[in-house]
């Protein structure tokens, strides 16, 4: 009898599925381009955080003649129109660019989830009101609206972050609402109600965790588009003059784009690599979080 039960146990352990998070992680590792994207992204984050301590040249200090070409005089990436070290600017700018991208994406995810989940869970006037607000923000020309905000409240990092976040939450809200509309009809929601779950519990603990996969993917991609957005604003001159960001480097040098293109090319490539890496990560997450593609 004891032998039998131990046999049963071994069998059972052999066929046990692993923790769902491990399963998702394993799926992710199978996707080579997503792993590459993740590695590139981690490298960029690492350089942005650690770089300033290792390469400690002040990005605002004029160190040599303007437009020194890459490699000359020991300046690996050359100097900009004021003779400031371009490599130092890119290393210092990475932190700001990533911080603005992440916090703007976070802001838009928070607003989007709040509005999307409430409008998806409650039908009636709450849904109508919130969806009309969402549509209002959707039809606003995003770049123009954020330029107005920055122009009104001044070009500081918090204002820029807010301006980007406030114009880009609609996509998250709509995805969240769609997922809520689908999930709230499922039986486990009724089952939770039948044992006394209140609305707030249903929203936060029953529906939201099940709605998260597409939101996570959208949030990841949102970081990429927020970085592009910040670069766009900075290129037009709407950047915080006290901090260096990749977009600001390009914006500062934009008059010389035809004569000395390299000064714009390097920060441009940094933005390109970062956004591409984030897109690859988002795509990989999409594949590994989508149950239909799993176990293929």
């Amino acid at each position: 009898m004891t032998k039998q039960s131990s046999l049963f146990k071994v069998d059972h352990e052999d066929f046990r599925d692993e923790n769902p998070f491990m399963e998702i992680f394993r799926m992710y590792l199978k996707n080579y381009s997503a792993v590459l994207g993740l590695l590139v992204l981690l490298l960029i984050v690492f350089i942005s955080l650690i770089g300033p301590f290792i390469y400690s040249v002040d990005p605002f200090e004029m160190v040599w003649l303007p437009f020194t070409h890459p490699g000359e005089q020991g300046f690996i990436l050359g100097t900009d129109y004021l003779g400031r070290d371009l490599l130092a600017q890119i290393i210092h700018g990475g932190k700001v660019t990533l911080a603005v991208g992440c916090s703007a994406a976070l802001l838009s995810v928070v607003i989007g989830i709040t509005i999307g989940s409430l409008s998806g869970f409650y039908s009636g006037w709450i849904e109508e009101l919130l969806m009309r607000i969402t549509e209002f923000f959707q039809v606003l020309p995003t770049l123009l609206f954020s330029m107005v905000i920055v122009a009104l409240f001044g070009a500081s990092l918090p204002v820029i972050t807010f301006a980007i976040g406030i114009v880009s939450w609609t996509a998250v809200a709509r995805i969240t609402r769609a997922e809520f509309l689908r999930i709230r009809e499922l039986e486990y929601v009724t089952a939770s109600r039948s044992v006394g779950a209140r609305d707030i519990y249903l929203i936060m603990r029953v529906i939201l965790p099940n709605a998260l996969p597409p939101i996570v993917v959208q949030a990841t991609l949102m970081v990429g588009s927020a970085i592009l957005f910040e670069a766009g604003l900075s290129f037009l001159g709407l950047s915080d003059p006290n901090v260096m960001s990749w977009g600001a480097i390009m914006g500062n040098n934009r008059q010389y784009i035809l004569q000395e293109g390299f000064v714009l090319m390097y920060p441009g490539m940094a933005i390109f690599m970062t956004v591409l890496a984030i897109s690859l990560v988002g795509d990989g997450l999409n594949d590994s979080l989508n149950p239909k593609l799993r176990k293929r």
């Binding site: 006394g196 965790p209 099940n210």
Partner: peptide, 21 residues
Amino acid sequence: LRGNEISMVFQEPMTALNPVF
């Protein structure tokens, strides 16, 4: 009252449990 005084078991055990907990 629900779950405390009066409770319900559903038809489809496959879909009546929350998959993420």
